[in-house]
Write a protein that binds this DNA or RNA. Structure first.
Lengths: 365, 365
DNA sequence: CTGAAAGCGCTTACAG
DNA sequence: CTGAAAGCGCTTACAG
């Protein structure tokens, strides 16, 4: 039992105690169990029936040697990998972190590992990571976060994605990536922002400002456009100089709100296109002694986990972020029907909280 | 130039337009460039000088075919992978998300991909993921987040980690994992909590409660122990029934604070062992009409990004989370000096904000 | 049920 | 500088 074959010349014995910086191999297991490589493989994969005594010997040998299969060799032999790729702008951002929670949860159910890439919103790195994930033969590549409206970026991404898909890779995205013909989980940014605008005009507001991120991001464009539409429904027009563009971060929101005040603008209601920016805006208003919602009402978008705990709690358009992560993962894994692009629409729900109120009457009107 | 060799019988031509669900291979590139496999490999890896004209032909062929090397084949041939593994309790938690930002940043600098595993605080899944990452031959495995004081878990983890390390794998952790002999980035939980306690008694507080997570977590034990020590320095003793244990989450903090109030306890100061729990506690106090810091002062630990934006902003012990992520990545990559375990201590800094104040004088004393 | 052998797609001594 | 060939560690028809 477990006796070593004689004659393993020129090779150090692998008995689980040697320190030769080398991994235990299926060959080692087979040798120790005194069976063929094929049999050892079959036992460990459970693919075929194997005589019980052999089976036991293999299992014992694998345990004794603390054998771990080489996933690269398996991927090569099977021509398929156990990992999927997830590309986001910034793992530290609660929006992405929450979606990532959904992705990892769904991936775990399929026994898949998630390779995470955080691009710091650099389009070039997005392309570079896609290439890496393609090289890794990731089972699927998930793009989370707004696309860029940029022809060069689109061309470079497609140059990576097309051969990947042609070779059987799956791609799915969250948010609009117009230039990419891929399966999509699409939050209804336009409709959500429009509904929010209507709710806000319904409260009596007429004077608005919007704090946005870079307009090259499709999400920014959609939410801003939808918000304008919703205002129009209430007969309100948003002046261009009341749309302030800054970085798509908490600090960007702070800067945008500060700039708004610096210009002397005093809208009764401000919409920040993401909750993260709204958090910054709220801090800026507080630091400048502007009461929310007393002097300015403030609303965001996304409903990231923290916003209900803010003071005041933030009015927003709620998106089921964890679920969106699960859905984009499952969408990528589901066998495509022909080559038509699939789109799963996600409705946003307007959640009115204390950060918005009817405009105060101090100004005669 | 680029002319196909004749006689590729029984194989569809790979010209970049076929849809045969098969990846382009280095062999395809070599063939199109009319050079040997070895030469193609050398050009693409830049390892050796290659005659300029051949070099150009290879590069052109690779581009024309949109070639992406198979990372698994490379890993197998080179016996080294481009990926590292990161195991955390929950990517959605701002503590881990912020550390992950540091890890991904450092990994990017080394051209490494991060395989992310989120365990939902299930020790069994932590072990299972470690096995997967070992199979992936991850260059390093990073364990983020508190260890469990659990002998079975320690045994199972060591059974995975020891053979991995023996074979040349690197392991580094954040926080104390007593049972694991690995390189560690160690926040000074004891010292930080003690310093916080002293600052709080310095403010005049004598009546404390602590909201904690599961006591089997080393971080919980260390922070609680340190806090007790710090109180003792001020001559204050913490009664056992004023330590309330709940889940290590925002909702756990909410539940713990609610339970505290339900029992009728009215300490003047409450310490939640993490900011995430403190956020929940703050919400609970607000919902129950308890003014912070008017009636109860509240402090947390970690200084996750949001806490400065809360109302009131939270007193806490600040840890450089992004930097910790970078350091644990770099520590794992740095060649070990002998087999001694390395420990990098991270000091926590007490940051007093408006959530703590001197106890009110309403109670005669 | 079991084994010998081919093959997955690369890299890299080893000869020229 | 270049190529033929062995080898990385598996899986899986193909024969028995």
């Amino acid at each position: 039992m477990g006796d070593e074959r004689p004659g393993r010349l020129g090779r150090s014995v692998r008995d689980g105690t040697s320190h030769d910086r080398t991994h235990v191999t299926l060959q080692d297991v087979a040798r120790r169990a005194d069976v063929s490589l094929a049999t050892a493989s079959r036992v460990l994969n459970g693919t075929t029936q194997v005589r019980p005594d052999l089976r036991e010997r293999v299992i014992a040998a694998a345990a004794a040697l603390a054998y771990a299969p080489n996933a690269h060799a398996q991927a090569l032999a099977r021509a398929s990998s156990q990992a999927i790729g997830l590309i986001c702008h910034d793992v530290g951002d609660p929006y992405f972190a929450t979606i990532a929670r959904g992705v990892t949860r769904a991936a775990a159910e399929h026994g898949l590992l998630v390779m995470l890439a955080s691009t710091s919103r650099d389009p070039a790195r997005e392309v570079a990571y896609t290439a890496m994930l393609r090289a890794q033969r990731a089972r699927a590549i998930l793009l989370i976060g707004s696309g860029f409206e940029d022809r060069d970026w689109a061309r470079a991404m497609n140059a990576e994605l097309e051969p990947y898909i042609r070779a059987g890779g799956r791609v799915a995205v969250i948010s609009r990536h117009h230039s990419l013909q891929v399966d999509t989980v699409q939050p209804e940014n336009r409709e959500g922002a429009a509904a929010l605008a209507r709710a806000l005009t319904g409260l009596g507001h007429r004077d608005f400002a919007v704090l946005t991120g870079p307009h090259a991001l499709t999400t920014v464009a959609d939410r801003l456009g939808g918000f304008r539409d919703g205002l129009a429904d209430g007969g309100v027009r948003l002046a261009d100089d009341l749309v302030i563009e800054e970085a798509f971060t908490r600090d960007g929101g702070y800067a945008a709100a500060t700039e708004l005040l610096r210009r002397g603008s005093r809208p009764t209601c401000v919409f920040a296109v993401t909750d993260v920016m709204a958090i910054g805006a709220l801090a800026a208003f507080r630091d400048h002694g502007v009461d929310v919602p007393g002097q300015i009402s403030l609303a965001g978008f996304d409903d990231i986990p923290i916003v209900g705990d803010l003071v005041p709690p933030l009015t927003t358009v709620a998106l089921p972020l964890v679920e969106m992560g699960e859905r984009v993962m499952n969408l990528a894994l589901r066998e495509p029907h022909g080559s038509r692009r699939r789109v799963e629409r996600i409705a946003g729900e307007v959640v009115l909280r204390a950060s918005t109120a009817a405009p105060s009457r101090t100004v005669p009107g």
